[in-house]
């Protein structure tokens, strides 16, 4: 067996992630009920053989909504991290390449500035401007991710640039662009994946918070954060509504945090905590 699986964080993280991805894929082809169909006669039912996790205030099947919610969460993470990765890594590498010059200074100051805004607040600002909704929420979270990746990419690129073989490659006549793509990008990929995993978890938490506040995913799209908002209204009469979506968020975030930690250790044994 591959030794990677024996790393506890990586192993547990991978199993949990498989669970979430499995749920998301399953929801594409099958859910116990249609998660959007409302049955007023069967509202706020406790768990039963028919509705495994009960029904919400509109009589929708909770189990089905949680399954479809996994799809939503993974999509949020993927797009938000994608935005951060593409723009962040490009900016970070450019800044490193023109280190100490105006471009570097401008990029890093700008990123520091974005970083000074608390993340959820940035998102709220953007959502006030664009209006609430899933797409805007994801963009807002993605924008917060840009400085995170850019800082990491800049630092990592500077380290690689200091290596002798890069100087050799430059002397051999490779253009800056070619050096970037052929030598530096592959070298910093590992670090970016590690960071990506952590930011994935962060994105899911942030989207859940925004949706809980009512400015993220809008109905009828199922979102775990939104479900918790609804659940809170009926906390006294139907507490079961508040349990499962929260567990789903926690498991997903845990999965990606653990994966990130595990990958960090596996990619760089020196960084392993003593």
């Amino acid at each position: 067996m591959n030794p990677a699986w024996r790393h506890p964080s990586f192993g547990v993280g991978a199993v949990l992630m498989a669970l979430v991805v499995g749920a998301a894929l399953l929801s594409l082809v099958w859910t116990p009920h249609d998660p959007t169909v409302m049955r007023i006669m069967a509202r706020l039912r406790p768990p039963s053989a028919e509705h495994w996790l009960g029904t919400d205030q509109f009589g929708r099947d909770i189990a089905s909504m949680v399954l479809v919610g996994a799809r939503n969460a993974l999509l949020v993470g993927l797009v938000a991290v994608g935005i951060g990765l593409v723009f962040g890594v490009a900016l970070g590498m450019l800044a490193a390449l023109y280190r100490g010059r105006l471009l570097d200074e401008a990029v890093m100051r700008g990123l520091d500035f974005v970083f000074a805004f608390p993340a959820v607040l940035t998102a709220i600002l953007i959502l006030t401007w664009f209006g609430p909704g899933l797409v805007n929420a994801v963009i807002a979270i993605g924008i917060f991710n840009i400085p995170v990746f850019a800082r990491q990419a800049r630092g990592a690129t500077l380290q690689v640039l200091a290596q002798d073989y890069i100087r050799a490659a430059r002397l051999a006549g490779l253009s800056r662009m070619a050096v970037m793509l052929r030598h530096i990008l592959p070298n910093i990929t590992g670090l970016m994946i590690v960071q990506g995993s952590t930011q994935f978890a962060f994105a899911i938490l942030a989207e859940a918070s925004l949706s809980y506040l009512g400015i993220g995913t809008q109905p009828p799209n199922p979102s775990w954060g939104r479900m918790l908002n609804d659940a809170q209204t009926y906390l006294g009469t139907a507490p079961h509504l508040a349990i499962v979506p929260g567990i789903a968020i926690a498991i997903t975030v845990l999965a990606f945090n653990l994966l990130g930690d595990g990958l960090r250790d596996l990619l760089d044994p020196r960084m392993k905590e003593r």
Partner: peptide, 18 residues
């Protein structure tokens, strides 16, 4: 601590209320 980082604070709040 891993659990603490993974649990959304608003859900933890709801659980505390429960």
């Amino acid at each position: 601590t891993q659990l603490g980082l993974a649990i959304p604070n608003f859900w933890f709040g709801i659980l505390l209320v429960l």
